[in-house]
Write a protein that binds this DNA or RNA. Sequence first.
DNA 1: CCAGAAACAGGAACGTGTTCTAGTATGCCA
DNA 2: TGGCATACTAGAACACGTTCCTGTTTCTGG
Lengths: 204, 204
Amino acid sequence: MTVVGQVTAQTAAAAETETAAQRARRARIISATLALASRGGFEAVQMREVAERSEVALGTLYRYFPSKIHLLVSAMASEVDVLSSRLQKRQAPGETRAERVSFVLERSTRSLQRDPLLTEAMVRAMMAADSTVGPEVAAIRQGMSDLIVQAMRNGGEAVEHDVELAAILQDVWFARQIAWLGGRMEAADVWRDIHQAITLVVPD
Amino acid sequence: MTVVGQVTAQTAAAAETETAAQRARRARIISATLALASRGGFEAVQMREVAERSEVALGTLYRYFPSKIHLLVSAMASEVDVLSSRLQKRQAPGETRAERVSFVLERSTRSLQRDPLLTEAMVRAMMAADSTVGPEVAAIRQGMSDLIVQAMRNGGEAVEHDVELAAILQDVWFARQIAWLGGRMEAADVWRDIHQAITLVVPD
DNA sequence: CCAGAAACAGGAACGTGTTCTAGTATGCCA
DNA sequence: TGGCATACTAGAACACGTTCCTGTTTCTGG
């Protein structure tokens, strides 16, 4: 079973040696980041502003998160954790595999679209991530893949290619979010396209 | 028939009123951009440097391309034009639809991976594009979609959902390029995954 | 050919991500 | 407890995308 829950696990592992004050700083930083992103999107997350609101020196902010991209990707990992734990509370409803996957991805999509500016900030950071952010990005993708695969299997056994299919759906899902954020697609069209991809790709 | 050839058509339309010197400037700018990107990727494309090499003032560069993102996306459109015209010279070989699509996408993938830094620069610009770059990005996607759909149809009639399937494949294609550029995937794995997506998604 | 408009050159200036420096506080080990 | 390494603060400094300003060249209509 690859379901791991905490996407931020590797961070948590390193955090075991962190003092309480350090954990508190990290939490304040992420919290300030989410607040700023939610208010004004990617460009509103300014490092000086984050530092000030977190009551942390700029240099300290950079000690915790070596770049704005790292910071926002970490914030996204934190959000995926929340979403993931909410969705894993119970099995996704639905008779067919496609129905259950639709349920999970629709919830995820709506959850993101509820806060467009925050989503814009996080997704843009994901896309701008270079190899130095590789581990964090991989963890987020793994978390989302787990969600989809779990919905497919419905607690049952693996099905052929289910992991690969989940990866394809995740690619489509991300690409459409970007198209939406880039103003090339309406929110409603995003969900329609994702749903269509599911029906085209996921066999009963 | 939606095949249009020139991705940069709308630019060309506006360019009809351009003087020869202006067309030359535009060409020098794009050329300098490609050279710098090929050498050092996204970060090596510095606006001052592009301006200097193009023998154009910085303000003039910004008159032609209102941002670095516009500049790089335009450069990509130019490259897609080249690739597209090369591939449309003759029908893609292959018996099945999947085989022909594989041929086209493999050629495209190899063409990009031959110059990783240039690809990195262009793809990162694509992903960072906001709504102000919407038209250019849409043109690039249309150009690639045409390539895929044409390979599917093989000069024949449309097949159900072929446009939607082409869009899915393009999403996967982009996402895997990004994963590769982000250091989360080997070049060989990129092609293997895309090929697998084709066989999973394109029915015979 | 002339006058006005538009485009261009050259370069200063600004904003924000990132780095660096100097001094101070905090935790750890003998 | 004292000393030392590490972490933190405050803020200057730097890099590059972007904007703006001033003066000059080029285009266009009459």
